[in-house]
Write a protein that binds this DNA or RNA. Structure first.
Lengths: 354, 354
DNA sequence: CTGAAAGCGCTTACAG
DNA sequence: CTGAAAGCGCTTACAG
């Protein structure tokens, strides 16, 4: 029994004010239109009027307990949802999610209370509040396979954003087809005559990182060529200088970079180091900045439709929670295709270019 | 009774498995450590073991109903919360809000289901769901005074972001001291010797717009000078060209612009028109872009601490909802001070500069 | 030390 | 047509 809890208008109060029973109030609110329980228009109006006056709204917790949903979609982000420092990972997704949520008339519950351990929020913890929402969207670069499996097994409705292989393929997701776009970009470089490939990727085990890497090496190797793989997490500083030194040494004609920020920084380092881009070195980014960075270079890159990703995830979750909306059945695992942007950082290789 | 509802492990099941009563399970979970109700370590262990095995988690809805509160702070934004097109008004605020919410362990409920009329969400409507949350933050450039008054009268806990005069000063808010910073900037221009002032502001009736305007004219007039006021909403196109034509005609030595986007655009128009900035015309922005725009000019401007605004609003709302946290009483109406950034768009005026 | 019971606010058969 | 009542899963005085 909370002491400080502000008074809450209940159905009983509404009932009293309208001179009906509490059950009647509930009925006019959830009014099945079927002929069995019909309430006279006049009573109905009176109740609605009182509800309007009091700005009454049913307690979602009580509704939930009583077994009906409450039009709440949860959003669980493994990292901060809103941009902190330079990181702005989720914003475009959230934009898409918000639009779709508005369309189908649901509110969004952001699980900001989940405890953060090692910079990541924990999905399962003592005071798990997932069930507060009818279903949940899961956003994060990396997700724990065991947690996902456990979530599927719990039969709680959810959709992951980004492809997830865990739980024997039972994870519902809306992901990006990074593999396809990466293959296209690799093909582009091969067709231009590039033979010396270098790939700098992020140290993540996530599917999205793996997809690009696998796709690039498959494409390059199928052309009888090979690609040097290297990894770094930092987008600046000594580590990136080290990464650049390694690249210089390897003397590729084309450099693929998973992270757009790293691509920008490396391009600047290259130019400062006397290497012309793309004349002496082509650079291809397998990602894109989410917001204008002030960097003027138009990279040859792939562009993921993040906003669409968000809205499609909401549509899928809605279907999982409430059934098909308009007779079109959405696949539980979807891959949205990714745009390839020609850009200005790729050219045919020249002999002894670097 | 929901048909599709996934099976849920309950305390009763746990109790059965552990050979205790359901109440005992609840007790070991919420175990007040006070000596009144102590459960023997052995029983306790047995229960905890079963809980671990079954991965049981208490239903938050039930907990909430039982009176432990649902730790939900609502966020009502009059416009889209997440960036749509070029508009990115709320993001920095949300960042601050998220951080503070995490600190005090509450979840965030975004009211995306509120119907949008004329591009703005309606606060009061048939299916008002404000009460879904324990309290609410209100964000928006302009808010309807009557709505605010009604909300205060309803005793629903809320905090507006931005100063609000309505309801005879009874609106709790955390705002920005635009007036103070504007006065400083006006003083700066006056001290540099400027005598011909021009102010281009937005067509809003909001307090934030009014504060800047009033403060600028007060400061300028108190120096025995005057300022030409003009208004435009657009940040580009024919309207802005028109605005520029009017400015040219008035021949000010210093131009104040409320909106940062307009300031950038006007500076470009001026330069293209052969007017050097700041040599021939000083420009001062009474605002700031929320994200890097790619515009290289470092404007003389004021900078509102939006993130802090968000976190302070959460702290205030928390206090209104749950009482003082650490014996420091927060004022119900706060103004956060605004930084003045020297920038590079102001210089002393030259005779016949424009 | 532990169980039985009331009650949180709702929904929904089931009686009148 | 409308009310009384059971029940959702929990917490917490209150009895044993």
């Amino acid at each position: 029994m909370a002491i400080n809890r502000p008074e809450r208008v209940t159905q009983r109060m509404i009932a009293e004010l309208a001179g009906v029973s509490q059950a009647t109030v509930s009925l006019v609110l959830n009014g099945k239109t079927d002929s069995t329980t019909r309430i006279p228009a006049e009573t109905r109006q009176r109740v609605l009027e009182v509800i309007r006056e009091t700005t009454y709204v049913a307690d979602p917790a009580a509704r939930s307990l009583a077994g009906v949903g409450n039009n709440l979609i949860g959003i669980f982000t493994y990292e901060h949802a809103f941009p902190h420092e330079s990181s702005d990972f989720y914003t475009p997704l959230l934009t898409g999610i918000e639009g779709a949520a508005e369309q189908i008339g649901v509110d969004l519950l952001m699980f900001t209370s989940a405890p953060v351990v090692d910079g990541r929020r924990r999905l399962f913890h003592e005071n798990n509040r997932l069930r507060l929402a009818d279903g949940c969207l899961l956003l994060g670069r990396e997700m724990d396979a065991d947690e996902l499996t456990r979530l599927v097994d719990s039969r709680y409705p959810f959709v992951a954003i980004g492809r997830r292989d865990a739980a024997d393929g039972r994870i519902p997701y809306v992901g990006v087809d990074y593999g396809g776009a990466t293959a296209q970009l690799a093909r582009l470089a091969i067709d231009l005559g590039h033979r010396d490939f270098y790939y700098l990727h992020l140290p993540f085990a996530a599917e999205s990182t793996r997809d690009r890497k696998d796709s690039l090496s498959a494409e390059v190797e199928s052309a009888g060529l090979s690609v040097t793989m290297a990894v770094t997490e930092s987008a600046e500083g000594a580590d990136l200088d080290l990464a650049w030194a390694a690249i210089r040494k390897a003397q590729p004609t084309v450099l693929f970079v998973e992270d757009a920020g790293q691509a920008e920084a490396l391009r600047d380092i290259a130019v400062a180091d006397g290497v012309a881009v793309p004349e002496q070195l082509s650079i291809i980014a397998l990602g894109e900045r989410t917001r204008p960075s002030g960097h003027a270079v138009d990279f040859t890159r792939l562009s993921a439709p993040r906003q669409e990703l968000g809205s499609r995830a909401v549509a899928l979750l809605d279907q999982i929670m409430n059934g098909t909306r308009d007779s079109t059945e959405l696949a539980h695992q979807q891959l949205v295709s990714c745009t390839v942007i020609a850009g200005a950082t790729v050219a045919a290789p020249r002999v002894g270019s670097m």
